[in-house]
């Protein structure tokens, strides 16, 4: 596979409906991958709101892989695939880290904000954001690999 082919696949264009990014599972690499993802989606007619949703969801999913799946693995790699559908984008995130506890996605946390300030939660927001902003969220562990699929609905999926 030539380099031109690789570049071609890191962005959605009128001639390709799929893109793929592979990057190290580290916080700064995730930051760069988010930037690359948004650049790769630049030719879609996304609203500012949709761009925000996509970036929030990807940040939560990818950072979760870094912090949990690869918590004790410094050289982990993450693969992100995006496929353009008629009314949504379908995302697949693959990693070779440890599986989710008990093989399932975390339950919807029900944190309360009603108590005193010192009891406010400082975490646990990630999965509620992911669940609120995606549909068809599905996790499967096969052999040594985690696979998370989800989609994000879009008003207009045309490419310019």
């Amino acid at each position: 596979m030539g380099q031109a082919d690789q570049r071609h696949k890191s962005a959605l264009s009128p001639t390709t409906d799929e893109m793929k990014l592979v990057f190290p599972a580290r916080p700064m690499a995730v930051r760069q991958a988010l930037q690359a993802s948004m650049t790769g989606l630049a030719r879609l007619n996304l609203t500012v709101d949709e761009q925000g949703i996509i970036e929030i969801v990807l940040a939560e999913v990818l950072n979760n892989v870094v912090e949990h799946a690869y918590a004790h693995h410094k050289k982990g790699v993450i693969e992100l695939r995006v496929k353009r559908m008629s009314d949504s984008l379908n995302f697949t995130v693959l990693d070779d880290g440890v599986p989710f506890p008990k093989g399932n996605l975390p339950a919807h946390p029900s944190h309360t904000l009603a108590g005193p300030v010192e009891d406010l939660p400082e975490g646990g927001f990630g999965w509620s954001l992911i669940r609120d902003l995606t549909k068809d969220l599905h996790y499967v562990r096969s052999d040594v690999r985690n696979r998370l699929d989800f989609s994000i609905a879009l008003a207009d999926t045309r490419i310019s």
């Binding site: 929030i56 940040a59 939560e60 400082e122 975490g123």
Partner: peptide, 12 residues
Amino acid sequence: FIDSSGLGAIVA
């Protein structure tokens, strides 16, 4: 842009 870790830092 802020993610849940950043939000947690602001709550902290």
